[in-house]
Design a protein around this nucleic acid. Structure first.
Lengths: 116, 116
DNA sequence: TCCATATCTCAACTACTCATGACATGTTGA
DNA sequence: TCAACATGTCATGAGTAGTTGAGATATGGA
């Protein structure tokens, strides 16, 4: 995953509406959700929703497919994972203290830290 | 870690200059680096550097301390870890496919995925 | 005290982000 | 074919981010 893509992903995730969108789509799983249903769920106008979905899709964090008259959106877990992975490896240099946070099963191996 | 803090962290990280800063400070370790040295290393003007350091510090991703006439900056690994942890847990709902990416030692346990 | 060094703050400007409403496009069923 | 529905695109305007250069503040040594 290249740097500009990671920057786009982080920028996409740094917005409350889009963070809500991501969570909703992760929960929805591979089946995804129709745009209209998402709008109702989150209380966004169609154009606002379309704007944010477009940013997430361009960042490679979600995917879309047309089914009849609906457009179904679903989370792209590889994109999400790739972004987090980049942060851990290329930005945090795989520092054990940072790694400990995302690997609950192995926290004891690492330096004591970060519970908030 | 609360949501607004995570949003601030993600926003802070979604900028090339600040991502460079973070990496530099993670590598520098607990000793940290003086602002002047960082500026030389990354080729930023003093005011530009101060601006970005301020954003990272406000987001809880770095810390500063004054030593003589220098201000020494160092990475706040707990802040960084907390942000990544939030993404994994509250946004990705601890999905195994996303988790796999940040736990090289246990990738085999998870669904095959994301190498790019 | 005075000067050089290190860093921060401020104003001004450009560029970008985001929300809104109007309109366009594409799809389905009568 | 036409109306209703689902979604996307566009123009606009407010607000915010980022860069620059000038100047302010703080520190240490002569």
């Amino acid at each position: 995953m290249d740097r500009s893509k990671v920057l786009a992903s982080l920028s996409a995730l740094s917005n409350e509406a889009r963070l809500d969108l991501m969570r909703l789509l992760v929960v929805a799983g591979d089946d995804g959700l129709a745009a209209g249903k998402i709008g109702v769920e989150l209380g966004h106008s169609a154009s606002r929703l379309s704007f944010h979905l477009g940013i997430l899709e361009q960042a490679g964090l979600i995917r879309s497919r047309r089914v009849a008259r609906n457009v179904i959106y679903s989370a792209d877990l590889a994109g999400l994972g790739g972004t987090i992975s980049y942060l851990l490896r290329d930005c945090c240099m795989d520092h054990p203290q940072v790694h400990a946070c995302c690997n609950p099963a192995r926290v004891d191996d690492a330096i004591p830290m970060l519970s908030e």
